[in-house]
Amino acid sequence: MVRTQQQRRIDSIIVNGLLIMICLISIFPVAYALSTSFKTQREVISKPPYLIPQNWSTDGYDQVLKSSLIRPHLLNTFINATGSSIIIVVLGVLAAYAFSRYKFPGNKLLQLVILGMIMIPTLTNLIALYRLGSQFDLLNTNIYMILIYVANGLPFGIWIIKAAIDAIPIEIEESARIDGCGPLQVIRYIILPLALPGLVTAFLMEFVFFWNEFLIAVVMLDNNNAKTATVGLLNFQNSYQTAYHVWMAGSVFIIAPVLITFFVLRRQFFRAMLQGAVKG
């Protein structure tokens, strides 16, 4: 069944056409948000709406800079997301290495239990975590957010990092072990460089997730100084009711850092994912 040249060309047009359409749908909302963020209040409430601002204005950004969205909210987001993602990757490497390389009783069972924790809905733990936080006076702190996020993201992190370590042939480690390297040295000098795409992938996924996390944050944080950007943006509903250009400018501020992070790390992320970082 050899397909003719012409059939192939038609196939290619259909494939590329559909993919271009999906790309447009993917970026349109964000592109339009960017465009709206440069409109004036008057233009925001004009009918019919313009795709591109007629009078470019930075009013939206000025208003956001005057609000608490950047400081302290986005700064908190940065601290919580970065702190928790790094801790998850570090602890995840240690745990995944143990699961991947050591035989000990209960290894498989423990893996299954941790994997099962991915299925625990965040909602289930919220009230208990809130009570715990108020008992230990930890609500409205970055530390407590980071601790919760680490526990929340760790099962998924271990799962992805273990897949990356499993893919490294054990023979590479053996000569290092014969030379007297301890497990931490083996992890540092052999596992880290070889499993790097997997670690980057784990970091990126956790970072994106916790940068954007809302459910835990909205419940634990009611002090304005401790709130994160997603919670702060929700508060815009009260303070900037129809000032959509301000909402959109705020959204741009939240999206930009994480979009850049994604763009920098995308190659390793795509490679690891396509090689089956998240296994069935």
């Binding site: 993917s26 909302p29 919670v231 999206i255």
Partner: peptide, 15 residues
């Protein structure tokens, strides 16, 4: 295609 992936649910809701 991955642009929406980095967008928070709150931001997506807002947009």
């Amino acid at each position: 295609m991955f642009v929406p992936w980095v967008v928070s649910d709150v931001v997506a809701g807002t947009i």
